[in-house]
Design a protein around this nucleic acid. Sequence first.
DNA 1: GAGGCTTCGTGACCGCGATCACAAGCGCGA
DNA 2: TCGCGCTTGTGATCGCGGTCACGAAGCCTC
Lengths: 238, 238
Amino acid sequence: MRAPYGLNILDNCLTCPVREEHLFCNLSPHAGQRLNEIKSTAVYPKGAMLFIEGQQPRGVFVLCAGKAKLSTSSREGKTIITKLSDAGDVLGLNAVISNRPYEVTAEMMEPGQANFIPRESLLQFLKDHGEVALRVAEQLSRNYYTAYEEIRTLGLATSPSEKFAKLLLSWSTKITQNDGMTQVKLTLTHEEIAEIIGTTRETVSRLFSDFKKRQLLQLKGSTLVIRNRPALEKIVQS
Amino acid sequence: MRAPYGLNILDNCLTCPVREEHLFCNLSPHAGQRLNEIKSTAVYPKGAMLFIEGQQPRGVFVLCAGKAKLSTSSREGKTIITKLSDAGDVLGLNAVISNRPYEVTAEMMEPGQANFIPRESLLQFLKDHGEVALRVAEQLSRNYYTAYEEIRTLGLATSPSEKFAKLLLSWSTKITQNDGMTQVKLTLTHEEIAEIIGTTRETVSRLFSDFKKRQLLQLKGSTLVIRNRPALEKIVQS
DNA sequence: GAGGCTTCGTGACCGCGATCACAAGCGCGA
DNA sequence: TCGCGCTTGTGATCGCGGTCACGAAGCCTC
């Protein structure tokens, strides 16, 4: 079975083998059944907007395949990326729970697939299944921690190099290599990195040059090799 | 009845007349009763730390009287204040729900009183009363929004003056005067304001002078008068 | 393979705000 | 009331990073 955008449709992406902490995994059979009834699956091309900052919350999206970036921007056009999401993440939960407008824009960075659960159905579902409500609370709590980390980064780290080092480390912890080094596939443009750490494209460019010169990292094509983690950690130190 | 620190002890500060959205208000009689059993009340002097960043979560504090500041700091000693709390606020909820260390330090800014609910008791209470769990989710969602606003402020507003204006406006919306102007009791030091907007004490001093010169605000003793809201809003514009 | 669009590298400049330093104001307790 | 310590005002300096400007290098389409 072949979907648009060269993507294989996943049969039921609510059952996620990977993420233990996933909101809708390991539900009771009854709850799982009910969830399947109220969800609907759709496929999105690169650049698709799942929802846009300021819109009334229609519902949540459970990302099954593909990556999405969450961002917010000021009137003057300055944009910051607050989170990169991938399969398993639940998007729009805060807005739905608190019935406020989506606080961020969710844009697909590559073709992907997501389950949509309308707001009213979800709220009813949570009322009927109290045990899931507590898991929602836990998920919201995780969201909060992520946001909180962001505050620390933006508020406490003064220099762009500090934030850059922090970002690199956050990438390298995900995929650890057998030897001391770590390599990550670099899918972001300098512009996007700048929007994550709150600086300009040019500064990111200069940071890359600088860090290469200082033997902290290395670029093989689009693969980023972290060569000296301790030194990066020393730059961060917060 | 007279408590230490010149504070009148409140009889039962879980019943709050003011805040409709309060977590533990308007509970079912049974739940309210149960809550009363597991909570304990204490009185704190100015400067008391309810909990400290990094500590294992012992439980939540429901602030009944007094103000508290939530802050986090880096190893180098730089500190940011993430929130000012007053009566009705629930502190430490995120840490308790997700069982992670307290992410901030909560310090009393003036003498006050708080109810303490131990972690285990609270979790059991939430399991027994599913309807309260959903309200916890809503509270967490509000916490998230607050954090999110902070991210926008720190990440999108470039200049200190922008953040300062934003802060002033957030104060002035709370107490509106009959004429165009608003006045607020200023209880924070310049140092603390600096820690809120992420700049230095000197810059805050200069901002005050500057804004006074530009007729945006005025100081009568410790009372801050906002004289030109539209102009402040124009400075913010994000 | 040629053209055009996005992304990236780098130099030059400059202004803002951090830092340091010190004096003056203010409040609070002995 | 005095004096000490916490606050606040303000000047001088300086370096980082934002901004502008341009050219080079990928990369996808036709």
